[in-house]
Design a protein around this nucleic acid. Structure first.
Length: 259
DNA sequence: ATGCCGCTCCTCGAGCGA
């Protein structure tokens, strides 16, 4: 089963690029972030006619996450637990059943800039809630993964110019520590587990010719519970997508699991 | 130090992103 995460930066602007990638890459599941659409305006028919089931958790203009799956999506829940007053659409969960069941969590973690400030406070608070959900997932001993745009550069080797990110919410020690604390519950960060070399990125800014200069960062991650990590066959970044027409600033990252 | 670029919307300028 091939499961991908992809921050598409707007479903309306990305529909052609997204459909082309789906037709080629043929993921069984795609966890999407930044759909920037309300549920009613998400073009679900375009995916359904390609054999995907569609579940969305959208909001107007900003954020928004979705799951596309060739297998039925069961037990869908929306919103990260822990703060009923949080109205930002950044979390969706569902179960699909292949050879065995897997719980899928799609997430769009807050950017957090500028620091310090309320947006950074929100990021850290959101990560505290994520830690709680992650701990519960770990305790359940399920085959599960949490994948999406984490807005975290885990280590200096995950940025072309780490010095440029030193004081950024994506790389501050407190951000990295919060991410490590979640991984250290026992998760396997799939890409790093299979690809030790530095210089591999999932985001290149639209500005200042970042793509042309390969000035990227790796911020889109798939975290696997031990039960899922045991099934890990492969993990890759579809880098070439970034060089196409009207690309997102992120590219897909995917795992192949033996289920 | 700032903006670069791109997306969105009660759209022609501003908020947001990373």
């Amino acid at each position: 089963m091939k499961i991908a995460t992809f921050n598409i930066n707007g479903i309306k602007a990305r529909i052609n690029a997204l459909l082309d990638w789906l037709d080629e890459a043929q993921p069984d599941v795609a966890l999407l972030q930044e759909i920037k659409s309300v549920d009613e305006n998400f073009p679900r028919e375009l995916f359904e006619e390609r054999g995907y089931n569609v579940e969305t958790h959208g909001q107007k203009s900003f954020n928004g996450v979705a799951i596309l799956s060739k297998l039925p999506l069961e037990d869908v829940t929306r919103g990260l637990p822990g703060d009923d007053s949080d109205e930002q659409a950044r979390w969706i969960e569902a179960t699909v059943v292949g050879k065995q069941a897997i719980r899928l969590c799609g997430l769009y973690l807050p950017n957090g800039n500028p620091t310090p400030g309320p947006k950074y406070d929100y990021k850290l608070a959101w990560m505290e809630r994520l830690h709680a959900r992650a701990a519960a997932l770990m305790a359940s001993e399920e085959v599960a993964l949490m994948a999406g745009d984490y807005n975290i550069i885990p280590q200096d080797e995950d940025a072309a110019r780490p010095e440029a990110w030193q004081k950024d919410a994506l790389a501050l020690p407190e951000s990295r520590a919060a991410f490590r604390r979640i991984v250290n519950l026992g998760f396997t960060e799939a890409f790093r587990a299979r690809n030790p070399s530095p210089g591999q990125y999932s985001f290149w800014d639209y500005q200042a010719g970042s793509w042309q200069r390969d000035d990227g960062i790796r911020i889109d991650h798939l975290l696997l519970t031990p039960q899922a990590a045991d099934l890990l066959l492969d993990c890759q970044i579809d880098k070439d997508i970034r060089g196409r027409e009207k690309p997102s600033d992120h590219v897909p990252v995917w795992v192949e699991l033996d289920l």
